[in-house]
Computed example of a mutant assay.
Amino acid sequence: MSGRLAGKVAVITGGASGIGEGTARLFHAEGARVVIADVQESPGEALAAELGEGAAFVRADVSREDDVAALVDTAVERFGHLDVMFNNAGVMGALGPIDRTRMPDADLTIAVNLRGALCGMKHAARVMKPRRSGVILSTSSPAGVLGGVGPHVYSAVKAGIIGLSNSVAAELRRFGVRCNVIVPGAVVSAMTAGLVAGGADDLGGAERALGETAYMDRPLRPADVAAGALYLASDEASHVTGIVLPVDAGMTGAGGPSPFATGRYEEPTGLLEAGRRTVAPD
Results as ranks from 00 to 15, higher is better:
residue 137 L to Y: 03
residue 155 S to Y: 06
residue 23 T to D: 12
residue 104 P to F: 13
residue 21 E to G: 06
residue 79 F to K: 02
residue 135 V to C: 07
residue 81 H to R: 14
residue 90 G to E: 03
residue 128 M to S: 03
residue 188 V to A: 08
residue 278 T to H: 07
residue 13 T to R: 04
residue 116 G to K: 01
residue 194 G to W: 15
residue 70 A to M: 09
residue 16 A to S: 12
residue 57 F to H: 05
residue 44 G to V: 10
residue 226 A to C: 11
residue 133 S to W: 14
residue 4 R to W: 10
residue 84 V to H: 01
residue 202 D to I: 11
residue 191 M to K: 00
residue 228 G to P: 03
residue 234 S to K: 10
residue 234 S to R: 09
residue 77 E to D: 11
residue 25 R to S: 09
residue 271 L to K: 07
residue 273 E to C: 02
residue 71 L to T: 08
residue 181 V to C: 04
residue 101 T to D: 03
residue 1 M to G: 06
residue 86 F to E: 01
residue 115 R to Y: 08
residue 93 G to N: 04
residue 38 D to M: 12
residue 160 G to V: 15
residue 6 A to Y: 09
residue 27 F to C: 10
residue 50 E to T: 10
residue 230 L to D: 03
residue 177 V to C: 07
residue 244 V to D: 01
residue 26 L to N: 03
residue 174 R to T: 14
residue 144 G to Y: 04
residue 19 I to H: 06
residue 88 N to M: 15
residue 269 T to I: 12
residue 123 H to F: 15
residue 133 S to T: 07
residue 90 G to T: 03
residue 37 A to R: 01
residue 280 A to Q: 08
residue 221 R to G: 06
residue 81 H to G: 11
residue 43 P to T: 09
residue 214 A to P: 02
residue 154 Y to F: 15
residue 28 H to I: 07
residue 92 M to Q: 12
residue 148 G to R: 06
residue 205 G to C: 11
residue 86 F to W: 07
residue 252 T to M: 08
residue 252 T to Q: 05
residue 145 V to R: 02
residue 282 D to E: 13
residue 165 S to C: 12
residue 83 D to Y: 11
residue 61 D to S: 07
residue 29 A to H: 11
residue 179 C to F: 07
residue 4 R to T: 10
residue 130 P to G: 10
